[in-house]
Amino acid sequence: MNKTVLSLAVLAFTSTAAIAETTVQSCNRTVTFDAAPKRAVSHDVNLTEMMLVLGLADRMVGYSGVSGWTKLDEEMRAGVKELPELAKKYPTKEVLIGADADFLFAGWNYGMKVGGEVTPDTLEPFGIKVYELTESCIHIGEKPKVSMDDMYNDLLNLGKIFEVEERAQELVNGYKSELEAITKTLKQGATPPRVFVYDSGESTPFTAGRYAIPTAMIEAAGGVNILEDLEKSWTTIGWEAVVERNPEIIVIVNYGDVTAEQKREFMMSNPAFANLDAVKNDRFIVLEYIEATPGPRNIKAIKKLASAFGNN
């Protein structure tokens, strides 16, 4: 082979290798993939469903973080029937290494904790690349206020990572069309109802602030989160703030050992909440955990909220 042919061959190989690489933004990191992952793990039920709607079950070796808090519904059970749950709650580094994973889709407080055992840095030496849930990025730096674009961004990035970009784009386009149709039904000029998200807790409530996806969902449905100015994602606050801001509607997130009805009964029977408009008028809406966290069911949940708000 002469030098000219050799140079052309090297150039062609280099160009092909460059084209094969995929780079995505994951929170404050740039992550590059030489090839699509083949042994992926997802954490939490909503992130797992993102993988499933993209048709990636055959690229997965398992999931984690579901049965410790919630139950799989029929749709999810069918989607993961061939996959093992590697950990009921948070996966350990040993569990991921033992599964021979090459990819983890998780988030901060969705399977990973700042300074914890499982992070992008701790997994990198073992060849496990991590993509972080966009909503969760606020835990390690600044980000814009939450929007439905956060969820779309994750689907599109997963599409790039796993080389199913067309499928991801089709899904996102469909969700945007559905949301646009819902928006068109909203009453123009109506005063947005004041909404409180009650996730859990009795002595102090765990709720959604400015950077948690329910804030975007409530706004898309024509309401306003009474804590949308709280510079937090999912967080604990005092009941005083809830009483002071007097929600007209309470959205209960249903998961864990305490049922949605028990959470409603707690608020209905507590004298401290007797003067809340939502309590006086018994206006509660239940969202399943998988609906109230970033994922494919957000859009139908927004439709449910809009109908309950009476804004359409």
Rank of each mutant, 00 (worst) to 15 (best):
94 E>N: 12
53 V>N: 07
45 V>L: 14
78 A>K: 13
180 E>D: 15
147 S>I: 05
138 I>G: 01
180 E>L: 10
238 G>Y: 08
255 Y>W: 13
303 K>D: 15
71 K>N: 12
216 A>D: 04
292 A>H: 01
252 I>F: 07
240 E>A: 05
79 G>W: 00
23 T>S: 14
164 V>Y: 01
91 P>V: 06
154 D>K: 10
160 K>T: 05
96 L>A: 07
89 K>M: 09
275 N>P: 02
42 S>Y: 09
32 T>K: 13
199 D>P: 09
38 K>N: 12
36 A>C: 04
291 E>G: 03
215 T>L: 08
247 P>L: 10
168 A>M: 03
306 A>Y: 03
178 E>Q: 15
289 Y>L: 14
103 F>Y: 14
36 A>L: 04
141 G>P: 08
165 E>S: 10
207 T>V: 11
38 K>Y: 00
299 I>L: 06
143 K>T: 13
282 D>P: 03
76 M>L: 15
235 T>V: 15
197 V>F: 07
58 D>G: 06
100 D>S: 13
72 L>G: 05
265 E>Q: 13
138 I>F: 12
54 L>Q: 05
257 D>R: 12
274 A>N: 06
78 A>W: 00
191 T>Q: 15
291 E>P: 05
119 T>Q: 08
121 D>R: 07
207 T>Y: 04
94 E>L: 10
171 L>E: 01
124 E>Y: 11
34 D>A: 10
21 E>F: 02
73 D>A: 04
229 D>F: 08
137 C>H: 06
131 Y>P: 00
217 M>E: 13
119 T>R: 09
91 P>A: 05
69 W>V: 09
33 F>E: 07
79 G>A: 04
72 L>V: 04
139 H>C: 01
